[in-house]
């Protein structure tokens, strides 16, 4: 999922991060910052804010690496959650400032897909386009805008059960695609 020249096994990487070694954090940044920054930029539209959130998130990762428990999930997921929560916190803080932004971005889901994918993600782009728009839209609302499933359902004026099953199917679509 992340393109890199040298792959360090996750276990070793985590051990060396927990020892607070610079080389490990260098590696982490070089390999994961694009994924994290991409996610942050997707949530935070103002570039300067996105940079600040990236900065805060990475510092948080560095500070909290001692709390990371590999038995509870992958390192990437853990980092993504930190980046996502930091972004959504900012959105909520500036809710009024961003509100318009969120609303327009929801109606223009297709427009959002014009993010220039790198060559390695071309097939992924196909996949994202194949994800039914209503499923993608929900995923964006919940995952990228921090809506609860209830709020998202209300926003789209669909029953909560429908929202839940659409999200579930969207994730399952992604899952089955990558299981091949």
């Amino acid at each position: 999922m992340i393109t890199s020249k040298i792959k360090i096994p996750e276990e070793e990487l985590v051990a060396s991060l927990k020892r607070n070694e610079r080389a490990a954090f260098d590696y982490l940044y070089d390999n994961y910052s694009a994924a994290l920054y991409g996610l942050i930029s997707k949530i935070i539209k103002v570039e300067e804010d996105a940079e600040n959130v990236m900065q805060d998130s990475f510092i948080k990762i560095w500070r909290k690496i001692g709390d990371y428990d590999p038995s509870k999930g992958r390192l990437f997921t853990w980092m993504v959650n930190i980046a996502r929560n930091t972004s959504i916190d900012l959105i909520r803080k500036n809710k009024n400032v961003y509100k318009e932004d969120i609303d327009t971005s929801i109606t223009k889901v297709d427009g959002m897909m014009s993010f220039q994918p790198e060559t390695s993600t071309i097939d992924l782009r196909d996949l994202m386009e194949n994800l039914k728009p209503e499923r993608r839209e929900l995923l964006e609302l919940v995952y990228l805008q921090g809506y609860t499933q209830e709020d998202a359902a209300e926003h789209l004026k669909i029953p909560l059960g429908t929202a839940k099953s659409r999200i579930r199917t969207a994730l399952q679509d992604l899952k089955s695609y990558f299981a091949i």
Partner: peptide
């Protein structure tokens, strides 16, 4: 894994 793929779709170098 799915979520990871979903995110890496939006990769952007800082």
């Amino acid at each position: 894994q799915s979520i990871g793929q979903y995110i890496s779709f939006y990769q952007k170098t800082p």
